[in-house]
Nucleic acid binder design. Structure first.
Lengths: 338, 338
DNA sequence: GACGAAAATGTAAGCGCTTGCATTTTAGTC
DNA sequence: GACTAAAATGCAAGCGCTTACATTTTCGTC
């Protein structure tokens, strides 16, 4: 008894079209090598049988999968969700499929996830930021896996990256803050260990401080996990000191909005009594009151470009090309001159 | 010259461990069928060579891929991002990998995406809601693809689904609203065409209205795309009528928050002059002022359960089991008695 | 120590596809 | 029509793995 649920194979199509399997395969992959007559017959057979090539077989024989893997901290973070969505859309347009894995903010999981996605046949990989064990990069190079870093960009870095320069973007905002007369600048950072975006952003603030002749080391800084509440807690700690800052610069919008909430709860007026700034320009920034001053980052553009670049790398077998995207200040209502 | 970048194969491992390829394969798949001594040798060889099984070969020989596909409207929507994240985490824990595709809110793309993911070897599929072309369900059944619907649940429905009952959840909220004395209820719905979640939620409101002896047809309703601005526009249209509603029930939080913004812009006090309600309980609801009254839905739990259920379906080759999750009212500050 | 059953291992046949090479067909030229 | 180069097609060898079946080893019993 024939298995009614078995999928038609290349051979079935070949038989129906009265050609060899090679011709069918060519029809699928390099149609211009097939005569119009044969093309027609094969097309009809494919249509009639509802044939879809078997992915595994194809992967094995052709050694590529048209699949690209991405490893991000979490999709729940809007900035990753947005970029990843654009990445996926572009991938899809180009005939690639997205394999997703997340570290849930435990960077030590990344190495294993990379292996998993590679084992799953990913033709290329999208990773977040620069910071990871050299052994991981080593593995990637040894196995000749095309990869691309996103959400970050450093001049003359050793790895191909597409993103924005966290340090200089934040420095630009910090210079503006200083130009507004602020001298006592509090900082709420994300956890910097293993997170170069956070590290670079703090470094940007410190750079601007130093340029202005201020001592970076004397700027109070609190590290807080990525959550509204921890931003709120950090803020209240900063404000509770004997010499509270006149502005609190947060490494991202989520922490900044937490700070804003906290300010409201504590009855501290923003921006009259204290200014607050963020980074990322998530949708929320214009929904809170007062609207948050922050740095806009083109996440969707980045995701799309990343997809295009990665595919180009894979298909043209060429080395990666980094790309630096511009960020822009969004001066809204939470920053006032001192 | 040997290809230095070639991956070690099963055969290489077998040679290094001085056993047959079958033993290595068993070590990988059913280790208890291998003697401790052999197990040790193979483990050492795997370690030494840095062996990873080839996905395609495995897929071809074993006819499964340990890969599960999910098709969602967009990851940019927090409610999908959250559920999908949990889904992915659970999948990962169980040794499965997630393949993601999105329709970008064009349901007509779904059928093709389903085919793509199946062709990519997905062992099972996670889909959103019930509403789709019968031909799609037909295809799924013909090919015997395990699938699971999420973000929705209807009693005695023909398909396995894990989610909450949108209709009764919204009806519960609507009954509460009516109990607060509201009689003139405006509705801002998402686009209902092809979206059973939106359809059911509106139906829930209408049900409660009818129960209370009010005419559902006379309740003003505006459909608006999923975006803050369209919620805002819809709200201002509703309020501009000669007999503006005393409460505006929105089908989701995004529309509700848009409405809230609009109310503020128009100088209409919430909840004193008009009440507003949402649905989903996204993080934002407690960050806006006043805090939004809405319906909480356990997205993360749903995602995890969906992963478990789908894997069970696949591995135990059993029919799917639907599961209805409870939603809960979150009575906050945007709803006041009339 | 011999025996049989159970456990462990090995052998080898595919799984469905791509592709190098060989062969046939087609088209162009004299 | 004969001849040649180019285009189209076919043949068949893998790709790396799983697994049915055959064979060998181990172990408990008498």
């Amino acid at each position: 008894m024939p298995d009614t649920f078995a999928q038609p194979t290349l051979e079935d199509v070949a038989r129906a079209a009265e050609v060899s399997t090679a011709t069918v395969s060519r029809f699928l992959n390099t149609p211009d090598q097939v005569s119009p007559k044969a093309r027609e017959k094969v097309a009809a057979a494919v249509e009639k049988l509802g044939y879809t090539p078997h992915f595994g077989a194809r992967a094995m024989a052709a050694k590529r999968t048209q699949t690209i893997g991405a490893i991000i901290p979490t999709m729940e973070n809007a900035i990753f969700a947005r970029g990843l969505q654009a990445f996926q859309e572009t991938l899809n347009d180009k005939g690639y499929t997205l394999l997703v894995s997340s570290t849930a903010y435990r960077p030590e999981l990344e190495a294993e996830q990379i292996r998993t996605l590679i084992a799953r046949g990913a033709d290329g990989l999208l990773l977040i930021g620069y910071e990871r064990d050299p052994a991981v990069y080593n593995y990637l190079h040894t196995r000749r896996i095309p990869y691309l870093l996103a959400w970050a960009h450093r001049e003359n870095a050793a790895h191909t990256a597409i993103g924005f320069d966290n340090k200089s973007a934040m420095a630009t905002l910090a210079r503006h803050v200083i130009a507004q007369g602020h001298r006592n600048i509090g900082v709420i950072s994300g956890i910097r260990l293993g997170n170069d975006r956070a590290t670079d952003r703090v470094a940007g603030i410190h750079l601007a401080l130093a340029e202005a002749g201020l001592d970076p080391a004397s700027a109070p800084l609190i590290e807080a996990p990525y959550a509204f509440e921890s931003g709120a807690a950090a803020f209240s700690n900063l404000m509770r000191t004997s010499n509270p800052p006149s502005v609190v610069m947060c490494i991202n919008d989520v922490l900044a909005i937490g700070a804003l909430q906290s300010a409201r709860d504590l009855g501290i007026k923003v921006p009259q009594e204290v200014s607050i700034t963020g980074f990322d320009d998530i949708e929320l920034t214009t929904l809170v009151t007062p609207k948050l001053t922050t740095v806009h980052v083109p996440h969707r553009t980045m995701g799309s470009l990343a997809a295009e670049e990665l595919i180009a790398q894979i298909e043209e077998k060429r080395p990666g090309q980094s790309c630096r995207l511009d960020s822009a200040l969004r001066l809204r209502d939470t920053l006032a001159p001192r």
